[in-house]
């Protein structure tokens, strides 16, 4: 193939159509990933948006290029940006979630709260509508803007009313599942593996999200997950050691 070989109008139209379909299909996948991010209040990575934007630049160039080499370059560039985009979105989501869960797996190792103030925590919990699904939001309301008190009360509630052997098993199971999925995604990158179905990993992420939500909802653990970093800031063992 050399620079002078050019595509006919119909061939170019077909390539443009395929690329446009990919942009649309991946756009829908990003929307779903966003839903997962929003569930836990996470920020969707900026890098993913810029990769998506860059795929459009390649698409636009298809309208001015005709020679085969340039057209194929643009086509592959477009695919590469879309694939990188969705992979980044999935890995970042899983990493963030995995790190949060890992802290709860060994919470005694990572968290500490002042046990001399137990009556305070109990009083707050007594005034909290714990039967409400999102008990964490109720605790926040009770604590006003006292973050330390909020973090300590959440830890107290976790230790006394949520934590159990069964929960620990489930958390470990989820963390292992998340780690394996991340590893799978990263190894796919090393091997330049392309699943024939682009939604393969997306479906794995959705299943992971659904499994996590459904299995942790009953105990109330689900609502603690997004508070992990706030609690870590206030009651993390490392923070206490350095303060």
């Amino acid at each position: 193939m050399n620079q002078t070989e050019i595509y006919g109008t119909d061939e170019i139209a077909l390539i443009k159509k395929k690329c446009a379909d990919s942009i649309y299909e991946f756009g829908r996948m990003f929307q779903i990933m966003r839903e997962l991010y929003e569930g836990f209040g996470m920020y969707y990575p900026k890098e993913c948006n810029t990769n998506y934007r860059d795929s459009w630049f390649h698409y636009r160039k298809l309208y001015v290029k005709k020679d085969k080499i340039s057209v194929l370059n643009e086509k592959y560039g477009l695919e590469e940006h879309l694939l990188r985009d969705v992979k980044d979105a999935q890995i970042y989501f899983l990493q963030q979630l995995g790190e949060w869960l890992m802290l709860w797996c060994s919470y005694k190792k990572y968290f500490y709260y002042d046990r001399t103030d137990l009556p305070k925590y109990i009083a707050i919990l007594n005034h909290t509508a714990l039967e409400e699904k999102n008990w964490v939001a109720s605790v926040w309301k009770q604590c006003g803007s006292d973050r330390k008190l909020f973090a300590s009360t959440c830890l107290y509630q976790f230790e006394n009313n949520i934590e159990s052997d069964m929960l620990q098993v489930k958390l470990n199971e989820l963390v292992c599942g998340i780690k394996n999925l991340i590893l799978d995604l990263r190894l796919g990158g090393v091997d330049i593996y392309r699943p024939t179905d682009n939604t393969y990993y997306l479906e794995k992420c959705i299943s992971m999200y659904n499994n996590l939500c459904l299995s942790l909802r009953e105990t109330g653990m689900l609502y603690l997950i997004s508070a992990t970093e706030l609690i870590w800031n206030e009651c993390g063992k490392k923070n206490i050691e350095t303060n």
Partner: peptide
């Protein structure tokens, strides 16, 4: 595709974002 379970309400999502924002601010 597998459907995303709609477990968090809009209010839950806003509160979760608020918690993440609080953590990021203090960091």
């Amino acid at each position: 595709r597998v459907a995303v379970e709609n477990i968090f309400t809009d209010e839950d999502k806003r509160f979760n974002r608020f918690l993440v924002d609080c953590a990021l601010e203090s960091q």
